[in-house]
Amino acid sequence: MANYGCAADELQSLTGLLASTGMGLHNASLAGQFICHKLDDMSSQIAATKLAVDNTYLLFSAYLVFAMQLGFAMLCAGSVRAKNTMNIMLTNVMDAATGGIFYYLFGFAFAFARASTPIAS
């Protein structure tokens, strides 16, 4: 994610640019610091919003997966004789539990791992 704040060299060039407009060096320095502070605030707000949207999407997607699991259970229960319904329901519960365990063991790392080195393009 891009950082919208100012580094020290960027603040110096911004102060120099503002001072060249006839603002004075002290006022230009204060204006540059104010602008950089506002950019830092904007950057942190964008990061917080991105995190909230990502988490909401993840939770909604998980809800849809479990709702589909219920639909599959009803389909399977309707496809077999009444005496085998309990076995089919147990199979569906075990399927969901196994999927959750394997996501915990392997899937989370694939979904949220950070690349240690950038991929060359």
Rank of each mutant, 00 (worst) to 15 (best):
M1C: 08
A2W: 09
Y4R: 06
G5T: 02
C6E: 00
A7C: 05
D9T: 09
D9Y: 01
E10Q: 15
Q12F: 08
Q12D: 14
S13Q: 14
T15D: 06
G16A: 11
L17S: 13
L18E: 01
L18S: 02
L18N: 01
A19S: 13
A19F: 03
S20W: 00
T21H: 03
G24V: 03
N27L: 07
N27T: 04
S29I: 04
G32W: 00
Q33I: 04
I35F: 09
I35T: 12
I35N: 02
H37S: 12
D41E: 12
S43C: 06
Q45Y: 08
I46D: 01
I46K: 03
A47W: 02
A47N: 13
T49S: 13
L51C: 09
A52H: 07
V53H: 11
V53C: 06
D54Y: 00
L58N: 13
L59S: 07
F60Y: 02
F60I: 03
A62N: 11
Y63W: 14
Y63C: 09
L64Y: 04
V65M: 05
F66K: 10
A67R: 11
M68G: 13
G71Y: 04
F72C: 05
M74F: 15
L75W: 14
A77Q: 03
G78S: 08
V80E: 01
R81G: 03
K83I: 00
N87K: 06
L90G: 06
L90F: 08
V93H: 03
M94T: 10
A96R: 01
A97E: 06
T98W: 06
T98Y: 09
G99Q: 10
G100C: 13
G100S: 06
I101M: 11
F102M: 09
Y103S: 02
Y104F: 05
Y104K: 07
G107W: 03
G107I: 02
G107H: 04
A109R: 07
F110H: 12
A111W: 00
F112D: 11
F112N: 15
F112G: 08
A115C: 06
A115L: 07
I119R: 11
